[in-house]
Amino acid sequence: MKVRQLSESQGLSYSNLVILSLYAVFLGVIVGLIDAIFGRVLIGLSEYRDQHIFYLVPALPLAGLLIVYLYQKFAGKAAQGMGLIFKVGHNEEDQVPLRLIPLVTVTTWLTHLFGGSAGREGVAVQLGATVSHAFSRYFKLPNASRIFLTMGMAAGFGGLFQTPIAATFFALEVLTLGQLSLPILVPTLIASFVASTTSHLLGLEKFSHFVSESLTIDLETFIKLALLG
């Protein structure tokens, strides 16, 4: 794996990193707040669905039609979702519309309320990336789009799942497969930890799933897991 080293030739001086680190604190608070709202409402809707499942699940096709209508009517480029994030990161597009935030939030809420299957990690990444990229225009840095998307993705993922270290290394790798973008490790880590702490302080509990079966790690199990890995 190639590792990018911090150098002036990349346009990231130590003063740039200090500025980015200060911005990371601000970003973490904002994204952590958004994650807390999104996550707490999602938990509440899921609990409500479980209590009224026979009334809500049959209406899932109607909810699906509503979601399609919302995307066709209001989404524009935001309909590309994660695809748009990657395009901006690779300089194929230059903007992530802010409308992506309410769109992906509301449609995910609707999906979970009516019993649909939808992940949360993609939503978290998109929320953080959209918020962060909106501020990139105020910073004159080389590769600003990629830098701010990386910080935002880490903050979004870390804030919703409260796994800041995993979120940081996910974000550092995902836009540049096969490389670690180490020059922005510090601000990305700060953004992720601040977002995680903020959402936790605002009452967002970690998503969890109870596993009733116990797993004994013996030689046979280890071999099976190694083969699966």
Rank of each mutant, 00 (worst) to 15 (best):
M1R: 05
V3Q: 08
R4G: 02
Q5N: 09
L6P: 05
L6A: 11
L6E: 10
E8T: 13
E8Q: 13
S9T: 12
S13M: 04
I19E: 14
L20C: 07
S21K: 02
Y23A: 13
F26C: 06
G28E: 08
I30T: 14
L33A: 12
I34K: 02
I37A: 15
I43P: 06
G44W: 13
G44Y: 13
S46R: 15
D50T: 05
Q51F: 06
L56F: 01
V57L: 07
P58L: 01
A59N: 00
A59H: 00
A63N: 05
G64Y: 02
G64H: 01
I67G: 02
V68P: 00
Y69T: 01
K73G: 04
F74G: 01
G81P: 00
L84M: 04
F86I: 14
K87C: 00
V88Q: 00
E92P: 03
D94S: 15
V96K: 00
P97K: 01
L98V: 13
P102M: 13
L103M: 04
T105E: 11
V106S: 06
V106L: 15
T107I: 06
L110T: 04
T111V: 01
G116Y: 02
G116E: 11
A118E: 07
A118S: 14
E121H: 06
E121L: 08
V123N: 10
V125N: 07
Q126P: 09
T130D: 04
S136W: 03
R137W: 03
S145Y: 06
F148Y: 04
L149T: 11
G152D: 06
G152F: 03
A154K: 02
A155S: 15
A155L: 08
G156P: 05
G158R: 11
Q162I: 03
P164A: 10
P164C: 11
P164D: 10
I165C: 07
F170H: 12
F170G: 13
F170L: 15
F170Q: 15
L172T: 07
E173S: 15
L175Q: 13
L177H: 15
L177D: 12
G178D: 14
Q179P: 03
L180F: 15
L180W: 10
S181Q: 14
P183A: 09
I184M: 09
L185P: 09
L185M: 12
V186A: 12
I190A: 08
A191Y: 09
A191E: 08
S192E: 07
F193A: 14
S196M: 09
L201Y: 13
G203A: 12
E205P: 06
F207T: 09
F207P: 00
V211T: 11
S212R: 15
E213L: 14
L219G: 01
E220K: 03
I223N: 09
K224N: 04
K224P: 00
L225W: 05
A226E: 10
L228D: 03
L228G: 00
G229K: 03
